[in-house]
Amino acid sequence: MTATLKRVPLYVLAVVLLVFTGFPFLYMLSTALKNQSEFFEAPFSFFTSFNLENFTTVFQMGLSRYFFNSILITVLAVGIVMFIASLASYPLSRMKFKFNRVLFLIFISGMMLPIHATLIPIFKLTENIGLYDTLWALLGPYIAFSLPISIFILTQFMQEIPKSLEEAAKMDGCTHFGVFWRVILPMLTPALMTVLIYNFIHLWNEFIFALVLISSPESMTLPLGLQDFRGEFSVNIPGLMAALTLASLPILMIYLFSQEKVVKGLAGGAVKE
């Protein structure tokens, strides 16, 4: 009895935190399910209506296009990053050569770099190579700014792989690339998973490069498209809420299906195991 009583403050605190973190999501979903008149009559009632109309409306109004663009650019950029970051991490973590340490530091110092320090030159470069206002404008910056954390995670992991495996393969006549491809890469799966999740979520949500490099709706990614919706939906608040709900859904779903992996992936750069 006293033990239960003692726990009351704990329960209160847990519920306060639950409301603080979860309430905005409930509000968003509840509002997205109302139509406009219902919202204006009772903006603060919870789950009183279950209208799915808003979802189909925003999807037809261009959200599907933004979804497609976001998926395409994110998958492509993350795929390339996983490959070229693994390639670079191999000699950086397992071979001795001049400038090794310097190169490594140059790569990982990108983690602290404010994107703003590169924004104008990247904008000019994108214009000059004729990619301005296309989805492809984002590919270079997305890959480049994902490299530091990816190389950091992968080199840390590669250092742990015993040298003997590599030497055995070399004895068998494997080239460096053969060793990398057949011995190292298959062992990297957990680290690559971390790289995948971390970069996927960050690029899916990326905003500032999209804002600077894209202006027409057909090339917009989800975050930029949402910002664009804001003007069109200034009076249709439930509509905007439906768009926000749909845009947040994929990552939340991935999280609910593999919580452990997502949490580990997002902490990957900061938590050593």
Partner: peptide, 25 residues
């Protein structure tokens, strides 16, 4: 040469979109 080939893809993208822009800025 092998080391260069391994590092080059990442380094080129990184140099074009991160290192060079800082100097340009």
């Amino acid at each position: 040469l092998t080391i260069m080939l391994f590092i080059a893809p990442a380094f080129i993208v990184y140099a074009v979109y991160v290192l060079y822009p800082i100097f340009s800025t």
